[in-house]
Nucleic acid binder design. Structure first.
Lengths: 296, 296
DNA sequence: TCCATTCTCTGACTCTAGTCAGACGACTTG
DNA sequence: CAAGTCGTCTGACTAGAGTCAGAGAATGGA
């Protein structure tokens, strides 16, 4: 790793934690402990306590106590879930909502204050650079994992994939038509499904079907709308190629629909070349193939 | 303030504090409290406790206790000052130095890890954007204040100003030659000295001499080498013009040396036009003037 | 139906990170 | 040389942020 890059990251961390971190946390907490403020924020329009705990990574006893304190302050009400009466639902009261909005305003004011000290041109540069950092830092925390197709996270991806194609394809799309790729096909040893997650929420996926010593068949490539432009598609593709090579596949093949222009551009720029139709996929207009370097 | 800019800053804060903040602080602290680690870091190659306290903004009792704990762990030794036996000097032991280097390494490793998750192109973009954010955030925390010329901070600026000109001018420079601008001249009502500080360290200055209803005379413009490229010169100049206008000056005048090319470029781009020599300043090659809009 | 699991809550702790007041010796200055 | 100031230390507190070990209800599955 380049030393000057590392040094830059460290300088960045230092400056940013001093400026942003210190202000953000302590300022926003007002007269309330930070934990309570964070909780207030995360509750949003009502949420079950279980997911709050997961989102903030806190001990159940601790959250319970924080909630009680917010309840005592009249900012939050809790009630037991209708379906499952073990779970507690937390909801903001009117006061709670007002308090959250106030935090919001203070947050805005803080950001505005920071910007106001700078002259216009530099203000714009700062905001642009922040946008870059934010997007790339987000991209850097995306994790890839081979996931069972029946896993809820994988299910979410596959549903989102189908939903998107249904919107974009002329005449819609259904997983039941065309060439099938069911759970069993996307599970070793027949194939695999790679899922990209940001924190714990799925933001993309891609599947491979293995055919003995023949080319691997790429399927179900999807990137969530919120995560586009982060180079995720390319990273998914590269990781899938790595997996295919590791399984001894000499090449990767795929078919795609003319409506998916950005995907087609990605395949081309990643070294895929258009080949004659190698199957009779109903939804496909283009067929691509890329020969893989042999795996050692 | 533009709403989308504010929103971007807030998103940035959120993402960055999650990613960087959380890691940085808690990870680096190892098994030692964060306060001790920070202190260990700040001691560096030995430092008096008084300045440590100031640098970290901590209570004297608290620092005392932290030091004692570090001492008990064999990482630090303290001794009384030779000149003034009230002050304590803290110095790292061999173990202390090793520990600090370890923190250093972990810091590097953390930064490298972050970068490694990204493909090359994005890695470079991230580092470039971080550099921008860091510089601009630094610039945003610079504060300007009219300061008495005898204040140590102001003294530092004036000495640094003279030292730099002495290096850059053909034939050197001395405050005693040429047209004088002594402390009394740079103090209301005769004039003023504006000092720019980053946290508490001086990074730039600029002086004004008032001449009744005549043009104000700009003197002693200096920006520390470490703070160049942040648009500080321009902000100093603008603030000085504001001050001059507020004092009823119809214009600002200045003379400058041909060696100060970037300053000359700044004056030109800020609307100053070259005028015939209006004084006999020994060191000057160019004379500039800018008419100010009337102050309401 | 019963047993294991899930979800939440309570009580009893711990550790960090401070704050505040006062004591005390070391300097400084009139 | 006396009085005040400075730098440090100690003791006595406080609040925040969490951890850990159950207890007890609700639910799900065999």
């Amino acid at each position: 790793m380049d030393e000057t890059m590392v040094a830059q990251v460290r300088r960045f961390n230092r400056v940013v934690t001093q400026q942003v971190g210190a202000l953000n946390d302590r300022f926003l907490a007002r007269d309330r402990p930070l934990g309570e403020s964070r909780l207030l924020w995360e509750i949003g329009e009502g949420r079950d306590v279980r997911s709050l705990r997961a989102a903030l990574g806190l001990d159940s006893g601790y959250v319970s106590r924080l909630l009680r304190s917010l309840e005592a302050a009249g900012l939050v009400t809790t009630q037991r879930g209708a379906a499952d009466r073990r779970v507690t639902l937390a909801r903001l009261t009117g006061d709670g909502r007002a308090e959250r909005d106030l935090l919001d305003e203070r947050s805005d004011a803080l950001a505005a204050e920071l910007l106001e000290t700078l002259p216009h041109r530099q203000r714009e540069r700062l905001v642009a650079a922040m946008a870059d950092v934010e997007r790339l830092l987000t991209a850097a925390t995306v994790r890839f994992a081979v996931t069972d197709p029946d896993d809820p996270v994988a299910q979410h991806c596959l549903r989102a994939y189908a939903a998107e194609l249904d919107v974009r394809f002329d005449g819609g799309f259904s997983l039941d038509r065309g060439i099938r790729a069911d759970a069993a096909d996307l599970r070793p040893p027949n194939g695999l499904l790679l899922v990209a997650t940001l924190h714990a929420t799925p933001v993309g996926c891609g599947g491979l079907l293995f055919h003995d010593a023949g080319p691997a068949h790429l399927k179900r490539m999807w990137v969530d709308e919120s995560a586009r432009g982060l180079g995720l598609g390319r990273r998914l593709l590269e990781e899938l190629e790595r997996q295919a090579a590791e399984h001894g596949a000499p090449a990767v093949r795929l078919e795609t629909n003319a409506a998916l222009t950005e995907a087609i551009a990605l395949y081309r720029s990643a070294g895929y070349t258009e080949v004659p139709a190698f199957n009779a996929e109903l939804y496909a207009h283009h067929w691509f193939e890329k020969v893989l370097p042999p795996w050692e």
